[in-house]
């Protein structure tokens, strides 16, 4: 019962943070609020017993992403450019997409039911057999690293590719690495 109340409080805080992010004109405050949003999501994941996901969300969302946002902020202005015009196209796209999402909600199976598709396909096999087949206590690790080894290889390749992409777009020249900072770039 207490978990239900904690969930309700966390979800309310998430909505308040999202509205605050939307209303805030100062980009520094927006960035900080984004970090708070990630931390709240991480707490929600803990309530859902998804500790591994919460760990990742706290480290990446509230940690690294925030630093990268701040680094970008130091290169641009802190004030959001305010436009008072309401674009009809954007508004209609938002309303239509939102309508479809709410319509789609009716087809989602009820939360936490035993007969949900996610529970009936492979989850049971993993829970019953991973002890004999893999032999390590953390089920999440055995699924990620062994049963789904190809997927994790793909994820790492994506991260590596992203790293190469950032280096091509934003990488500094060799002179910069030697400590000679090219100030004309900024």
């Amino acid at each position: 019962m207490i978990v239900l109340y904690i969930n309700i409080i966390l979800l309310c805080l998430l909505i308040i943070t999202a509205v605050a992010i939307n209303q805030q004109g100062n980009l520094f405050a927006t960035t900080m609020l984004t970090g708070i949003f990630s931390l709240l999501s991480a707490s929600l994941f803990v309530c859902l017993d998804a500790v591994d996901v919460a760990f990742t969300e706290a480290a990446v969302g509230a940690g690294i992403a925030l630093i990268l946002f701040l680094g970008t902020l130091s290169l641009i202005k802190f004030k959001e450019k305010i436009t008072n015009q309401i674009s009809i196209t954007s508004l209609s796209i938002v309303v239509i997409t939102g309508g479809f999402l709410i319509y789609g909600l009716h087809d989602i199976p009820a939360f936490g039911q035993a007969e949900n598709p996610v529970q009936t396909y492979l989850a049971g096999k993993y829970i019953i057999e991973s002890g004999n087949e893999i032999g390590i206590p953390n089920l999440v690790t055995s699924v990620l690293a062994s049963y789904r080894g190809y997927d994790t290889l793909g994820e790492i390749t994506v991260i590596f590719t992203a790293c190469i992409g950032v280096l091509i777009l934003l990488g500094r020249s060799k002179d910069d690495y030697k400590g000679i900072i090219n100030k004309e770039r900024f």
Partner: peptide, 28 residues
């Protein structure tokens, strides 16, 4: 299985940590 998981997790850790520091260098 145990050896394999330890080594691939090590590979994941090395790539992710160096990528994150590279990203920091690029943005800072």
């Amino acid at each position: 299985q145990h050896i394999g998981i330890i080594f691939i997790e090590l590979g994941v850790g090395i790539t992710v940590s160096s990528t994150m520091i590279i990203l920091f260098y690029a943005f800072a």
